[in-house]
Design a binder for these strands. Sequence first.
DNA 1: TTCTAATTTGAATCTTCGCTCAACAAAAGT
DNA 2: ACTTTTGTTGAGCGAAGATTCAAATTAGAA
Lengths: 184, 184
Amino acid sequence: MRNRAGEETATRIVDAARRILSEAGLEAATVKAICDAARVRPGSFYNLFDSKETVILEVIRQAIVAVDPDPERTGRDHVTDLMEAFVRFVEDQPDLARIYITVGVSGGITDAGIRTRMIRHHTERVARFTAALLRDRPELTQTEAQRQIEALLAALNGYTLQRMLDPDFDFAGHARGLLEMEPR
Amino acid sequence: MRNRAGEETATRIVDAARRILSEAGLEAATVKAICDAARVRPGSFYNLFDSKETVILEVIRQAIVAVDPDPERTGRDHVTDLMEAFVRFVEDQPDLARIYITVGVSGGITDAGIRTRMIRHHTERVARFTAALLRDRPELTQTEAQRQIEALLAALNGYTLQRMLDPDFDFAGHARGLLEMEPR
DNA sequence: TTCTAATTTGAATCTTCGCTCAACAAAAGT
DNA sequence: ACTTTTGTTGAGCGAAGATTCAAATTAGAA
């Protein structure tokens, strides 16, 4: 089969970039560092990717996508399901979670493309959660539900941020606690 | 007076570093860029600071301190006062707010000193807010109050994060909305 | 005014960055 | 087996990075 070897190498490079971005930040993600971690020479890197930026953006794209699992299920989830999915994401894929919350934001400041993507993703997330909440509690108005979801997602992002700083922080506990803290 | 000129120059350098860090991120904060913005030559920079890192860390330190205005007032504020102070901080000093939430966190991943500082600052903030909440609503237990404050601060940080991405986001409105959304 | 220490300069140094390329190796198609 | 495409290598390029330093300048002290 064509392209087999090249694809495997490309995957190894993106994986290495993700690890470095997560563990040491954007500054440390040099071509040399990524190549060393992927056991590849720079020539091979540039045979597969146009630039370092391409790889970094690919990792950020992966992170944004991974935040929102099973998007095809839209319209059949409860808020607790969506919440649980996010908790699992943060716990099981801390690399991508860290990139989403740090590199995504700081990259969003610099790069207009990333900013647009991040904002759009957030809008869609709000819509999905809001629809689920309205399904659970039909007595709420659209505006009320959206307000509450925005607060919930902000708190989740805030907890994620703290989790990235403090490995001992009980993210799952705090996140689930938010559900028992709905507005009066 | 001795040292007068040097101190003024040092201030100009730190100010320039803050502006660049906020507007263009850590990557863009090169010694050359900082020197140009501060109207200073590299030699002068290194006469006043040991390294670029020293200046960056100083800016981050400033940002962490600025999040918590008037700490000498501790013990006499209501939760609304503390909330209003934070809203004003984000609106009036977006440079420092952006650095706190982005550079601070991503720096916290790399630098153990920053991480410790960020975590300690957060702990103190939780304590201050919790004390204020207990003053407003003495019927709450310490644990309940702290739980609610942790959620509140997480939501505030989450909103701040979003504000950094989307300049059109109504941060003040959403932040104040959290107060009308206390747990049942 | 004169002296001296603080301050600024800007060219130079050394390192590392992202990236290229000609040559080689491996694999696929015929 | 032979040709062609695909993948890998690693030395090396120019640009940009942080940092240094001897010389020039400035400004406070005497």
